[in-house]
Each structure stands twice: as C-alpha cells, then as structure tokens.
C-alpha cells in the first residue's frame, strides 16, 4: 500500500449537536504517499489546522474516514499506534516542551512508549543530532531562541521514530532565520530519513520547497498538485486572496504585460535565469 494517509470524504464540525452550523471540513478526500513532502496552504479558518489534527486522532471526522497506514483513526484500540506513526508538531514551541532540560524533553515521547533506558538515550542523541540541537542538550528550554525551541519540539517527535511528521505552522512564531533552520531540518529529514512530511503553512516560499502543494479554502481542497502546477494558477490563487511567491508574482506580471517568459517560476534563481534568457 502506497498511500500513507488516506482521507475519505471527511466532514467535520466542532459541535455535532448544531446541525445547522457549517462544516469546518467539507467533503475532503486526499491521499498522501509514503515519503512525500506535502504542504497544505490556505487562509486562517480554511480548515488546514483542523485537518492536521485528524491525522493523529486528536479530532475524529464527523462523517467519513481518515486511514493512517491502514488504521482508521476512529478505532480507539489503534490511537497509540497511530500517534506512534504520526507525530504532530504545533505552532507554539513553548507549549509543547514538557521538561526543563532539552534532552529530557526529547526523551519524553520515548519514555511514554515504555522503551528501555539505553534505547531512549540512543534515540534521543540521534534525534538531537538530526535536528542539529545536540550541543544544546543540557540547556534549559527558556535559554533557547524560538527556532531552537521548535527544533527541540521536532527532535522530540523524531525520537519517537514516526513514519510521518505533521507540522501545524511550525514557523509562524519564528523569525526568518529560525524559519530557515526549521525548513532545512524538515527537508533533510524527508530526503535522508525518508520520513513523510505534511507541512501546514502560511508562507508560500515554504510551500514551494515541497513535492506537492494542497491549497485549502473554506473547508475544501481548492487545488492540489506539484508546486509548478499549483503556482501556475496565479489567477485562481489571487481570486481566493492567496499569495504566490514573489518571484512567481513578478514573472506573472511581466507575462501579462506581454513579455515571453516561462509558464511558472518558483524561486529567485529560476526567475533570474528566465529574465537573463529573456534579455539575451
């Protein structure tokens, strides 16, 4: 089976008693493959965070099913198996760190799994190295910057050796440098360790780095495809008040002025190359 996460016709609303209220998730179906790096983008209130909480049975669908590696999130017997497979990192790093010392916090998940101490130690060191936080292992979290704290939170999830990490706007509270640190860590984990990554984000510059971009709008999937596919639909995105990366925007505007440029560029480098070849 190649689909790691399968979302089948999911409807969700917070209060099941209020029959008239709108669904926060409105008939969503999508599949995320093993080893894929998928980005989910959309406005506040588009349902992207809510969807992310369905991936490890924090929320259960009102209608429809979420299947994680063959396990239905509605099945209570599998809740811990699912949470072992899918780690969730959330927005505010301060509210995810439990222990007063970095390495002890990273160990927290493994301790909950009931692993023997030597194995926990090994995994914690591995995870800290993977998140590039090894030299900070004896620090207290409040001595760290936002980006570092978020990497500690990610290390805490890595140590549990999940097959998939879901990140709900992990960079929203970070400065640009912290954002880069976190993104580089994620890309490395995906490329080197083959961990499936689902990144929920506001920043189109981050979404561009993914293998696949899913755009959500008012509880529905607006469009879904490779970054090239998605960001070539500049008009559709604009109509829904969504940004596109600056480089994409520039090329789009130049093209609408009649310049001959490629269909879609995603980053500064491609943009420069396109402009250079145009000038020549």
């Amino acid at each position: 089976m190649n689909d790691f996460i399968r979302v089948e016709n999911v409807y969700f609303r917070y209060d099941e008693n209020e029959k008239n209220s709108n669904y926060v998730l409105d008939n969503i179906s999508l599949c995320i493959k093993r080893g894929e790096f998928a980005a989910i983008v959309g406005h506040n209130g588009s349902g992207k965070s809510t969807l992310s909480k369905h991936f490890n049975s924090i929320y259960l669908p009102t209608l429809g099913n979420v299947i994680i590696d063959g396990l239905n999130t509605k099945d209570e017997a599998h809740v811990f198996d699912i949470r072992k497979k899918v780690g969730l990192v959330r927005q505010n790093p301060d509210n995810q760190i439990v222990a007063g010392i970095v390495e002890e916090d990273v160990a927290f998940g493994c301790e909950n799994l009931g692993l023997p101490p030597e194995i926990i130690r090994e995994r914690v060191e591995c995870a800290l190295k993977a998140a590039d936080m090894y030299e900070y292992r004896t620090y207290s979290p409040d001595k760290l910057s936002g980006g570092q704290k978020q990497r500690v939170a990610i290390a805490g999830i890595i140590a549990m050796e999940p097959e998939c990490i879901v990140l709900d706007e992990p960079t929203a509270m970070l400065d640009p440098q912290g954002r880069d640190e976190v993104m580089n860590t994620l890309l490395r984990l995906n490329r080197e360790a083959g961990i499936t990554i689902v990144l929920i984000t506001h920043y189109m510059e981050e979404a561009v780095l993914a293998d696949r971009v899913i755009v959500m709008e008012s509880g529905k999937v607006l469009t879904d495809g490779t970054p090239h596919d998605v960001f070539s639909k500049v008009e559709l995105l604009k109509k829904n008040r969504l940004d596109v990366p600056q480089a994409t925007e520039l090329v789009y505007r130049l093209k609408s002025c009649g310049f001959e440029l490629p269909e879609c560029v995603l980053n500064e480098e491609e943009c420069v190359r396109a402009l250079v070849s145009l000038i020549k």
């Binding site: 924090i58 995810q96 799994l113 009931g114 023997p116």
Partner: peptide
C-alpha cells in the same frame, strides 16, 4: 497554554504514566 500542552503531550503518547520508563 494548558490546553495546548495537553494536546502536545497526547501527541507524544502520554497516558498518565502507565508503562512509562525513564531515560535517566
């Protein structure tokens, strides 16, 4: 914060110390 932390702890398979081991 408490609500957030509770969710984060649940995400890391915390279920109240049953079967929990320690690193140190």
């Amino acid at each position: 914060r408490a609500g957030d932390l509770a969710v984060a702890m649940e995400c890391r398979c915390y279920n109240g110390g049953n079967g929990r081991t320690r690193m140190k």
